[in-house]
Structures are given as structure tokens and as C-alpha cells.
Design a protein around this nucleic acid. Structure first.
Lengths: 145, 145
DNA sequence: TCTAAATTGAGAATCATTATCATAATCAAT
DNA sequence: ATTGATTATGATAATGATTCTCAATTTAGA
């Protein structure tokens, strides 16, 4: 049993939910795939692999992952939610290429520190944040020439 | 004529669009209202004031404002786009209270500078970014006790 | 094994936003 | 000012992502 399965199982029993093969199947597929996947992409992928699960269940299960702390949902402004595993992953932010949709992750402790200062100045208790830089990636910039 | 009207007019003539009373009415109402307004809120407000304009036109006009550089659209994750006048306004980011939905603006040049460094490191050409801090504001924190 | 409670899948419902299209308004040239 | 071409408007339909509904199925625990 992977650590992620263990976390999911603990969340499930804590909330008197039930362990199902669908939930394991979604977790397995989710872990095997690229980060920042949409529900639709995950659905298609599982269907192609013969591990079909209803789309509604994909959504429900991804939300369950978020509630259990395994994953996070992101909105990059294209109208579809994206999900990424965050268990055992350092917090990071994103660079998004508007031309090829490439997503690059970055970490910057200095920025985080400054954010905390801003929050403190306004007496805000922060529980999450997001920082996204939109632009054109190196490859696309080169190809544009 | 306000400076904003002037900008809109220039954008309109540059793109061979047309000046209409609806566009002026929306601009007037938009400028008079609080920042970070939704299309629906603007629509309701104008209806109540007797300056009724169709909802589709509100959307079209707000997008026109964004194209002309007068306004920007924001997504704070509640499923509705919000718009704010940005002409002659310094760039800023947002603190968002998840309890009372209050939105506080802040400016931080140091964070911006660090963002530029991150972009440079990844050879990204940035044309926009967004930074949002989600949490509980001072008032709500106090009231929770 | 039995039963209560949770889960699933299919499709309906929802909600914000955009598209459609007939009618009306605007603009530029006369 | 009138005309003609083009764009804008408003009402409503359409869209697309996500959630809800509900009957049938599966799970957990006694």
C-alpha cells in the first residue's frame, strides 16, 4: 500500500466513508499521470485503459482527494479545474505559457516570506494563496522568431 | 468628458466600432461602483437605477473595457468573473477574506521584483500575473472568538 | 449473513458566460 | 439630413464544466 493510499484510507475511515475499487482506481490513475490534469482528461485516460469510472465519480473522487489533503485544485483561467497531487510535495507556484499551455512549477521562499508580511500588516490569517505568472515560455519565444 | 471616456472612444474609433449610449451608461455605472464587481451586480444595479441595459451587453461591454485597457477581469475562485477599473491605477494584488468576501488590495514592489527574477531564470516573457492571498480578515477573526 | 448507510453511473439540472439573429442605432459619404 | 453599410442591442438559446438526483449496487460492521 502506498503512502497515498494510506492517507486516503485514513480520511475515509475518519469520516465513515467507504473504501471502493473506484476510489483506488482513480487514485492509481491520478498518481500515474502528469500533474495539473483536468477531470475530463483523467476520465478519458481511464476509459481508454479499460478502467472506466463515471465522470461524476471522477469529480467526486478528486474532491475527496482535496479534502483528504492529498491533492489541490487549481484554476488557471481556462475554465477547467486542474488537480495535482500535493502530498509530500513542497508548496510551489506556477509559470503558465499562454501559447503552448506548458506549466512550470517554481518555489520561492523569499516571495512566501513577503506574502506573510503583507498578511501580517493587514491582520489577515492566510490559509492559502496562489501566484501565477502568465506569459510565453522560452521554446515558444524562440519559435515565434 | 472623463479620461476614461476618452480612452474608450479612442479604442472604439481605432477598431471601427461604434459609440453608443449603452457603452457610456455601462462605463458611468462601472466607474461609480465599488471595485471587483461582477457582471450580474452591475446589471442589477443599472436596472434598479432605471438605466437598464441587457445582460449580454454588460458582458460585451466589460470585455470591451478590458480590451481597451480600461479594466481587468479577475477570477477569485467563486465561479464569477469580477471586473475592476485599472486605468491610472497602480498594479496591485489581493487579499480575500473567505468568510465575509471582503477584498483588500495591496502593492508590493519587492514581490514583483522577485517574480521578474523567477521569470528570467526560466526564460519566460511575462505579460501578466496574479497573486491572491486567501484567509480570514481581521474583523472576522475578531468576531469568531 | 443481514442491514443500514454510502457509492455509483447515467443523465438531468445548474450557473456563468457566449452565441444567435432579427431589429435598431451609428457612421461616413453624399 | 438622407442613405447605405456596418455594428450594436436585447431576448433567448446554446454551451460547457460541474454538481445533483435517484434507483440500483456495494460496503462495513453487528
Amino acid at each position: 500500500m502506498t503512502k497515498e493510499e494510506d492517507i486516503l484510507k485514513k480520511h475515509i475511515s475518519k469520516h465513515r466513508l467507504k473504501v471502493t475499487k473506484e476510489r483506488y482506481a482513480v487514485l492509481k490513475a491520478f498518481m500515474a499521470l502528469e500533474r495539473h490534469i483536468t477531470a475530463e482528461e483523467l476520465y478519458r485516460h481511464m476509459k481508454d485503459k479499460g478502467a472506466s469510472v463515471g465522470l461524476a465519480t471522477i469529480y467526486r473522487t478528486l474532491n475527496l482527494f482535496c479534502e483528504s489533503g492529498l491533492a489541490e485544485q487549481r484554476q488557471f483561467g481556462d475554465g477547467q479545474a486542474r488537480y495535482e497531487l500535493t502530498y509530500n510535495v513542497n508548496h510551489h507556484d506556477h509559470l503558465i505559457c499562454r501559447q503552448c499551455n506548458k506549466i512550470i512549477e517554481f518555489e520561492n521562499r523569499e516571495i512566501e516570506k513577503l506574502q506573510e508580511e503583507v498578511a501580517k500588516k493587514h491582520h489577515f490569517k492566510i490559509f492559502s494563496h496562489r501566484l501565477e505568472l502568465y506569459g510565453t515560455c522560452a521554446t515558444c519565444t524562440k519559435n515565434n522568431k
